[in-house]
């Protein structure tokens, strides 16, 4: 296993280098930094942004908004999905709501959230509305797939309900929760930034992106995008780390 992983990494590195070179060539051909900044420019801008006074507050602000929204969503989704999985009336009550929020264009959700809430909280609500149906649907499927034979066994040994929940249902749905998390965490960050662009909280990554655009600082837009990608990668890495830890028994 080990050597093939490092081989994988080498190929990835090669691909990244290739794309950088391609970027350099295309940007030279275009020849206008406003349309497509060169990698060097973007790098300079990135260094400047990271060094600027507002950088960490913006990153921390957006991360906090994103994580608070994510945790709230995860908690409510697990609660509702497990209840709906075990108690059908709630499942049927939720089914149309889930379909509607899944089908609604994210921009409608953003506009509604802006109408309902202030600039700081609207992005959190947007994230919630976008990722809740994803996590919820995943977990409901997980509850459906809990091994009935294990539940039978627990009933036979007169295991109390609460322990059946914590020792059979929760571990059974854990893979579904984690799979949903790895999609939803990154998606949530992207929608939160999108909502920030429109709602304009005083300090945030979305606000910074928008002001870079207004000043025709395309390199700045690129640089902030890279920061967002790095943040998403960090989130992704944390989830896979957690997954490895929690599913060591597999």
């Amino acid at each position: 296993m080990k050597p093939s992983i490092s081989k994988d990494k080498r190929y990835t590195l090669g691909a990244v280098l290739f794309l950088l070179i391609l970027w350099e060539i295309v940007s030279r051909i275009v020849g206008a930094g406003i349309l497509l900044p060169r990698p060097g420019e973007t790098w300079k801008e990135l260094v400047q942004i990271v060094g600027s006074e507002d950088f960490w507050p913006a990153v921390i602000g957006t991360t906090t908004r994103s994580l608070i929204g994510f945790s709230l969503t995860l908690f409510t989704a697990v609660l509702f999905a497990v209840t709906a999985g075990l108690w059908k009336p709630l499942y049927y009550l939720f089914a149309p709501l889930v379909v509607i929020t899944k089908a609604a264009p994210p921009i409608s959700i953003i506009l509604l959230a802006l109408i309902w809430l202030g600039t700081d909280k609207a992005p959190v609500l947007v994230g919630f509305l976008v990722i809740f149906p994803i996590i919820y649907t995943n977990i409901v499927a997980g509850v459906d797939n809990v091994d009935a034979k294990l539940i039978e066994m627990a009933a036979m040994y007169r295991i109390r309900r609460l322990r059946r929940l914590s020792e059979i249902y929760l571990p059974s749905i854990m893979p579904y929760v984690l799979a949903a998390c790895s999609t939803a965490l990154g998606l949530n960050l992207r929608v939160v930034i999108m909502a920030e662009v429109l709602s304009q909280p005083p300090i945030s990554m979305g606000t910074s992106l928008q002001s870079a655009r207004i000043f025709l600082n395309t390199a700045g837009v690129f640089a902030w995008t890279m920061v967002a990608i790095a943040l998403a990668a960090l989130f992704d890495y944390s989830v896979s780390f957690l997954r490895k830890k929690l599913e060591a028994w597999r």
Partner: peptide
């Protein structure tokens, strides 16, 4: 009557160790 049932298949909790699987039924 309380029943212990040895099913045709073992029905162990895959996320619990051997020890925890046995402890599972007498914890309370």
């Amino acid at each position: 009557k309380t029943v212990s049932y040895l099913f045709q298949e073992p029905r162990l909790l895959p996320w619990r160790t051997v020890w925890q699987n046995i402890d599972f039924v007498i914890k309370d």
